[in-house]
């Protein structure tokens, strides 16, 4: 799966996991997920951590990294690709 496909998959999974009433096309990959972006809250943040672990088998080692990793769909995709590469290597 290339990065573009991963970004589209992430959009769909975020919508399903968080029961959002938007379409994938409504989500701009570079827009913030929290506050002014999709307006996600702290429980949604926990759901995204679960999503990352269940779907991609990637654990967030440091909680402090959360705000950076979950800043946008783009940053989530970068984090997944980086960690999958690490595991493969």
């Amino acid at each position: 799966m290339n990065r573009e496909q991963l970004v589209e998959e992430l959009k769909q999974q975020i919508i399903e996991q968080l029961n959002l009433q938007v379409k994938p096309a409504d989500i701009v990959a570079s827009d913030p997920l929290f506050n002014e972006g999709l307006g996600l809250d702290s429980i949604d943040a926990l759901e995204l951590i679960v999503l990352m672990q269940q779907k991609y088998r990637i654990k967030l080692a440091n909680a402090e990294d959360g705000p950076k990793v979950f800043q946008s769909v783009d940053t989530m995709a970068d984090f997944i690709l980086a960690n999958q590469t690490t595991q493969a290597g």
């Binding site: 968080l18 029961n19 429980i43 926990l46 759901e47 679960v50 672990q53």
Partner: peptide, 10 residues
């Protein structure tokens, strides 16, 4: 059995 959903727990 898996990872429970925080959104369900609340």
């Amino acid at each position: 059995a898996e990872i429970p959903s925080p959104a369900v727990f609340v």
